[in-house]
Structures are given as C-alpha cells and as structure tokens.
C-alpha cells in the first residue's frame, strides 16, 4: 500500500490507528446546516465507512472506518455537501482542498438564543469564505455574547458579540432591573444616579443584560453590531492558555482584515521546520514579540470610533 499521508491530510482525511483505514471530516461553517444534507452524510457512512459518525468538537462530522482506496469515491460523494455548504474549492469532485485552517465554529447565536447579539453562523460563513482554503493552522470561533458558550477564548481568534446599550431616560421608571441584572449576571457596570442608571463605559462588556431586563424598553440595542476580539488562546501540550482581549467594540470588516493579515504574518514567520508545517500562531508571536505581530495584523485596518485596542498583550496559561 502506497499512500501519501501529507496529501490525504490536506484533503481532510486522516491517518487513523487502524492500518489501511481513514476517516473523512466534513466541515460545517458556523455549525448549522439544513437537514437535507444529513441523508448524504448517512449514505457515505453506510457505504464507505463503518455506519457511524462522530460529531466533532469543531462542529463538523467525522466519518470513520473508510478504507484508503475508497477516498476518491468518498470525495465524489462529498461534492454535493461541499457545494451545498458553500465551501470554497479549487477543483470539483476532489474533496476538500485544505484542512489546516479548521472549521469556523459558532454557538447557535441569535437564530434562537435571546442573549446573542448577532447571527453567529452568518458571520462564521463570511469568515470561512474569506480564509478557506488555507493550509495554515488557524482556529476561529464565534460566540453570540460574553457568556462565551462557544469557548472562543481557547481559539486563535475568538469573536464575542456585543451591543452598545442605548438609554432613553424618558422611558426609565427607576425599577433597577438593569442595575440588578448587571450586578448579578454581569460585571456591575451600572449604578443609579438621580433615579437613572449610569453606565460605566470602561467596565461595560456589552452583554445586553440591561436591554433584556428592562421592562419598559428604556434600554435598547445599538444599530451597529460590535464585537470583542480575543487573541491566541490555545489548547495543546506545551502551554495551553486562554485568549486575551485584543480589541473591544470592533466591527466585522476589521476582524476579517486582521485575520487575513495574520495569514501573511504567519507565512513570513512560521518555523520552517515546524512538524507537519503546523505551529500555533501564539508560539510564533511569543518568538517575534507582540509588537511585530500587531504591526502586521493592523495593516490597513480602519477601526470604528468606539474601538479600544490593547497596547500589548501578555498571556498566562499553564506552563510545565
């Protein structure tokens, strides 16, 4: 048996512990899909795999138990999924063109969740369109609000939805629902002064609890959608750590630009001898220094007025 493992990994298959057998990974950007795609996944698992699927930790499907020789047929079968889920592709019927940049994950967002500040899947798909296919090992995750159910701080780029609350004082009846909710469920950025809530702008994390809890619509959401962008969290053996805040009150366009800029930065600075060509971005930044990264990342980025950028980030995390 002669198999080019480098090629198959790039093709979103993997080398498994069972010799001669692989598994196929189906990416689902934003973690939401029409059920019409499920029969095809079932068919591939039944026909080429062992009749099971694994729901991956990155919100895709992994079909195990596929003999290596079936890969071309699996790729043919995957075509309708790749097209249906609008995955960028270089050549038809050859499966996924890359696997380095991982599936963009998202919590359910404001399709369903009352807390979410935006359509997480839609933004995830927008990022997927902008960055995929790419061989570099990038992990991007989106979450609707600072509850961070999607655990975005464990990713290279973590995107948290925010809203800039707007107060109409003429509708406020001083019931203190916002002040209490902010104190008990969030960061305590509100206090009452002269029968009205006053927002500590520095403290406010834009979670929208004030809006959700206001019984009289005195608080409403900003027309503009804002995000918190966290940087370079990671899991792994060496030094797992949580992503730190990079920009508060950032917009979608700037986030996409920063991610694309980071691809250029990593291409320039990645360890040429990194095993499998794979090195977490954070280790590269540890090497070049944050300032060099920031210089590359912010190239041509036009931030919204409200944006607050961290000067220099220091990460903590677990060291052995």
């Amino acid at each position: 048996m002669d198999i080019n493992t480098k090629k198959l990994k790039k093709n979103a298959f993997r080398v498994t512990k069972v010799r001669g057998y692989t598994a196929s990974r189906i990416r689902v950007p934003g973690g939401h899909l029409d059920v019409k795609f499920l029969p095809k996944i079932q068919e591939i698992a039944d026909k080429f795999g062992n009749g099971t699927i694994h729901i991956t930790s990155r919100q895709g499907f992994e079909i195990p138990g596929i003999p290596f020789e079936k890969m071309p047929e699996v790729n043919l079968a995957l075509q309708s999924l790749i097209e249906g889920l609008e995955i960028n592709q270089d050549a038809m019927n050859e499966g996924y063109p890359a696997a380095g940049t991982r599936n963009i994950t998202a919590c359910i967002g404001n399709k369903v969740c009352p807390f979410a500040c935006y359509q997480t899947t839609a933004f995830a798909k927008r990022i997927e369109k902008a960055v995929f296919p790419h061989d570099l090992h990038f992990k991007v995750a989106l979450t609707g609000c600072p509850n961070d159910c999607a655990k975005v701080r464990m990713h290279d780029f973590g995107i948290m939805g925010m809203t800039l609350p707007q107060l109409d004082p003429s509708r406020c009846i001083d019931c203190k629902a916002c002040v209490n909710a902010c104190k008990k469920k969030s960061v305590g950025a509100l206090k009452t002064e002269n029968y009205r809530p006053v927002r500590n702008e520095e403290k406010c994390i834009g979670c929208g609890e004030c809006v959700l809890n206001c019984p009289n619509m005195a608080w409403t959401r900003s027309e503009e959608k804002y995000y918190r962008l966290t940087l370079l969290g990671r899991t792994g053996k060496k030094n797992p750590r949580l992503g730190e805040d990079f920009i508060k009150w950032v917009d979608e366009d700037s986030i996409i630009k920063i991610i694309l800029n980071t691809y250029k930065y990593v291409t320039a600075y990645i360890d040429p001898r990194a095993p499998g060509g794979k090195e977490h971005i954070g280790y590269i930044v540890d090497r070049t220094g944050f300032d060099e990264f920031k210089k590359w990342a912010m190239e041509g980025v036009n931030l919204p007025k409200a944006a607050e950028v961290t000067d220099r980030i220091y990460w903590s995390g677990i060291k052995y």
Partner: peptide, 8 residues
C-alpha cells in the same frame, strides 16, 4: 425596527 429586546 431595531428596538426589540433581542438582537435583530
């Protein structure tokens, strides 16, 4: 238009 409790 945009002034419901929930986003959008």
């Amino acid at each position: 238009g945009n002034e419901g409790r929930y986003s959008d």
